[in-house]
Amino acid sequence: DKVILPPLPHFKVSVFKSTGFKPKAWTVKVPNGNQKRESVVCYCAKCGSTSLDSELYRILFGKPWPYSDWPWVQNLDSKRWKGLITQTTKWKNFEQSPSFAVVRDPKERLLSAFRSKVRCQSNNLADRKRLVPQLLKLAGLSKESASKPLDGPGLCLNETIYLQALFMIHEKELQGRLDAHFLPQHLNCFLNVPPSKWSIVTTIGSAKAICDLELVVLGKSKGESCSFA
């Protein structure tokens, strides 16, 4: 019963890089005596990024994120981070600084993005309103391919149309234009630097992910909160 699909074309990462896309990686500068300790952290959307940002705040400031309004913890360039974090722009001499990247099983991640962003019982209606038309347009599918949600305005997708749309987008070599939640992970953290050059590449499910994050950012791990629930 196996379905054989025509092979997808080989995506030209070099052409994508020339578009000027900047990976969402973050340079963390922590005072260390008279100097500053510099590290790089990067994690994709749908890879536990919100939880990791909260942990990063606790590591840097010694307390949980105290705010309940905008700007959210995910806005790492907001004033609430006291200028400790900036978007990484320089990738030369990358290996001189410790670095931390989080990956997620690609199939699990895409199905998680489906459940929270585009399906007809979505968790995030504002994102669905924005993302479903984007996916249809990139795939070249008509709005008639989508469904009408019962829980809000706009359009939603069933699993088959969602995967068909993503497949068509990859067929057209347009995956570099996908929203961060669907963008292949190798087009973000690893666009400029392969996984082998990062100090730590881990998953959110790793028991010592937070210890590793502490170790990279502070140069030491307090050994507390090492497990990540």
Binding site: D1, K2, V3, I4, L5, P7, L8, F11, V103, R104, D105, P106, K107, L110, L111, E159, T160, L163, Q164, L166, F167, H170, Q175, P184, Q185, H186, F190, P194, P195, V201, T202, T203
Partner: peptide, 25 residues
């Protein structure tokens, strides 16, 4: 559970990611 065509599409669109960092999962 995904249908066979859905599974095949998911396999195809994630193949490159697995080849690049699958060993870290």
């Amino acid at each position: 559970t995904l249908s066979t065509i859905d599974e095949a599409r998911l396999d195809a669109i994630t193949r490159e990611e697995y080849s690049i960092f699958g060993s870290y999962l």
